[in-house]
Write a protein that binds this DNA or RNA. Structure first.
Lengths: 169, 169
DNA sequence: TTGGAATGTCAACAAGGCTGACTTAAAATC
DNA sequence: GATTTTAAGTCAGCCTTGTTGACATTCCAA
């Protein structure tokens, strides 16, 4: 509060944020992301899975029947990388890969009962923290939070993000 | 808007957010973090550095003269992991490690001119995106963004985050 | 029927985490 | 003054998750 940003009369409406203030936002992202992943990480560790598995399970739950190449574009990794993860999940009975009946090259991905259970436990943990953060920050903060995050995405990813649920939230 | 959260009379003040809404926040974190790291990553790649180097440079800039063990606790990695990164930075003249004069066991870390220049180019890139996001989201959103992120941190990390600048923003 | 797309797989490699064991130097404590 | 603890560094080896490149299979579509 020692800078122009809080000078009465100009206020923050013009977004005269100092570099220091913006930097603080950057550090907030860094530390918050650690918290964001901490709870699922603990669950995954016990099962010998990693974040890569979490992401795959999350998005297969989100879009049941999605194809491998669609998942690739959402996750932004190489197919070799995804394939390693997917193979483990299929081998261990968490994910089912059904051959497409229209296009038999495609594999449509579904969670099995066991996969759905893991997904639930992971997202329960993550939602609990998110909900607590929302509650602590107050009702007004939630919208601002989402708006800034959305504005921070690459345009392509933003499209995917928005498409993902189409009014689901 | 098809759920209890927007029922007139209770509104969002009670934070009746559906699981779907919270989930959307989780995905926002995921996609936004990709954007958050994208610009620095491009710069680092050309110089054969990675995110680990970025983090070290960032926090040394932030707290010049910090010790190795302090940096360890902020970054939350093992000393072997940090050492690998730090050695590269020192060897290549971006960071200077001065022996402490009070306690000669300690190494105090400083950016060299070259290190400061890299830091500037990385944080310029990151701040530009952050600023653009703030602008797009509007003045009210910034506070909410920071509040939710802060509430999302582990308590210990939150303390470190707050200590870091102590009123700097 | 042939070209290209979707998928899967093998091999090899790198970054950046991790553990464990050990050294050195210096400070702190007894 | 001797001993223990602390800060830092190092060596070796492992894991996850990312990368390239090469190649096989399948099959849609021009």
């Amino acid at each position: 509060m020692t800078n122009g940003a809080s000078t009465p009369g100009m206020g923050e409406t013009l977004l005269f944020l100092t570099d220091e203030q913006v930097r603080k936002g950057i550090e907030a992202m860094f530390f918050a992301y650690r918290g964001f992943t901490a709870d699922p990480d603990r669950i995954l560790e016990k099962l010998d899975y990693g974040r890569a598995h979490h992401r795959a399970v999350h998005f297969i739950h989100r879009s049941p029947g999605t194809t491998v190449s669609n998942l690739l574009s959402i996750l932004g990794v190489t197919k070799q990388s995804l394939n390693r993860v997917l193979r483990a999940l299929v081998d261990e009975g968490l994910v089912e890969a059904r051959v497409g009946h229209r296009d038999k090259r495609e594999r449509h991905l579904y969670l099995t009962a066991a996969g759905a259970e893991l997904e639930r436990s992971l997202s329960d943990a993550q939602r609990t923290r998110m909900r607590a953060a929302y509650r602590a920050a107050g009702p007004g903060a939630v919208q601002g939070f989402r708006q800034v995050l959305e504005a921070m995405m690459d345009p392509e990813l933003r499209k995917q993000y928005q498409t993902l649920t189409e009014g689901g939230a």
